[in-house]
Amino acid sequence: AEKTGIVNVSSSLNAREGASTSSKVIGSLSGNTKVTIVGEEGAFYKIEYKGSHGYVAKEYIKDIKDE
């Protein structure tokens, strides 16, 4: 099942092309942005936001229960 997560940073969080800190940054998400978690790979979540996919470090995403 898809989960919703909240970007848990004070400034912004980089979204990357792949599940690695050396992957190209494809965008950034500001704190408290809601994202859909579609998968996980190592220390990263694969997320969907406004129709695009990217990878973000798990430690900066807070899971919330689907309402």
Score class of each variant (00 low, 15 high):
residue 24 K to E: 07
residue 58 K to W: 02
residue 26 I to S: 02
residue 43 A to T: 08
residue 8 N to K: 12
residue 41 E to L: 07
residue 67 E to G: 12
residue 10 S to R: 09
residue 30 S to F: 09
residue 35 V to C: 04
residue 20 S to G: 05
residue 62 K to D: 11
residue 47 I to T: 03
residue 34 K to N: 05
residue 58 K to P: 00
residue 42 G to D: 06
residue 10 S to D: 10
residue 23 S to P: 01
residue 39 G to T: 03
residue 37 I to H: 00
residue 2 E to H: 15
residue 55 Y to F: 11
residue 29 L to E: 00
residue 41 E to Y: 09
residue 60 Y to L: 07
residue 49 Y to E: 01
residue 51 G to S: 06
residue 28 S to Y: 09
residue 13 L to H: 03
residue 25 V to H: 03
residue 54 G to S: 06
residue 62 K to M: 12
residue 54 G to F: 08
residue 29 L to W: 02
residue 47 I to W: 00
residue 44 F to D: 01
residue 65 K to T: 13
residue 48 E to W: 11
residue 9 V to T: 12
residue 14 N to A: 14
residue 33 T to A: 08
residue 2 E to A: 15
residue 9 V to E: 06
residue 4 T to L: 08
residue 54 G to V: 14
residue 67 E to D: 13
residue 14 N to Y: 14
residue 43 A to C: 11
residue 21 T to C: 15
residue 55 Y to V: 00
residue 27 G to K: 03
residue 29 L to G: 00
residue 5 G to H: 03
residue 1 A to N: 12
residue 63 D to T: 13
residue 38 V to M: 08
residue 23 S to Y: 06
residue 10 S to Q: 11
residue 66 D to V: 14
residue 29 L to M: 05
residue 58 K to N: 00
residue 27 G to A: 08
residue 30 S to R: 13
residue 29 L to T: 02
residue 45 Y to S: 01
residue 5 G to E: 02
residue 48 E to S: 08
residue 13 L to F: 04
residue 20 S to T: 10
residue 44 F to Q: 02
residue 6 I to Q: 06
residue 38 V to A: 03
residue 58 K to A: 05
residue 13 L to A: 13
residue 49 Y to W: 11
residue 16 R to F: 15
residue 25 V to W: 05
residue 43 A to H: 08
residue 41 E to P: 00
residue 67 E to C: 13
residue 57 A to Y: 12
residue 58 K to I: 05
residue 38 V to F: 05
residue 10 S to P: 12
residue 39 G to L: 03
residue 54 G to E: 01
residue 35 V to H: 01
residue 18 G to R: 11
residue 44 F to C: 05
residue 20 S to R: 03
residue 15 A to V: 15
residue 66 D to M: 13
residue 21 T to N: 14
residue 30 S to A: 14
residue 30 S to M: 14
residue 28 S to H: 11
residue 24 K to N: 08
residue 20 S to V: 05
residue 7 V to S: 03
residue 52 S to C: 13
residue 12 S to G: 12
residue 28 S to V: 14
residue 13 L to I: 15
residue 4 T to K: 08
residue 63 D to E: 13
residue 53 H to S: 06
residue 56 V to A: 01
residue 49 Y to H: 03
residue 2 E to F: 15
residue 46 K to S: 02
residue 7 V to G: 03
residue 60 Y to R: 03
residue 39 G to D: 06
residue 66 D to S: 13
residue 3 K to A: 05
residue 28 S to I: 13
residue 19 A to V: 07
residue 56 V to M: 01
residue 55 Y to T: 01
residue 4 T to Q: 09
residue 20 S to F: 07
residue 36 T to E: 05
residue 1 A to H: 13
residue 21 T to R: 09
residue 13 L to P: 08
residue 1 A to I: 14
residue 55 Y to C: 04
residue 17 E to C: 11
residue 15 A to T: 10
residue 63 D to G: 08
residue 38 V to E: 03
residue 6 I to T: 08
residue 32 N to E: 07
residue 7 V to H: 03
residue 1 A to V: 13
residue 15 A to L: 15
residue 51 G to P: 01
residue 21 T to V: 12
residue 64 I to F: 09
residue 32 N to V: 05
residue 43 A to S: 11
residue 45 Y to N: 01
residue 54 G to I: 06
residue 25 V to R: 03
residue 10 S to A: 13
residue 14 N to S: 13
residue 45 Y to H: 02
residue 55 Y to E: 01
residue 57 A to F: 10
residue 1 A to L: 14
residue 62 K to G: 12
residue 56 V to I: 08
residue 33 T to G: 04
residue 33 T to M: 10
residue 12 S to A: 09
residue 26 I to Y: 02
residue 28 S to T: 14
residue 66 D to K: 09
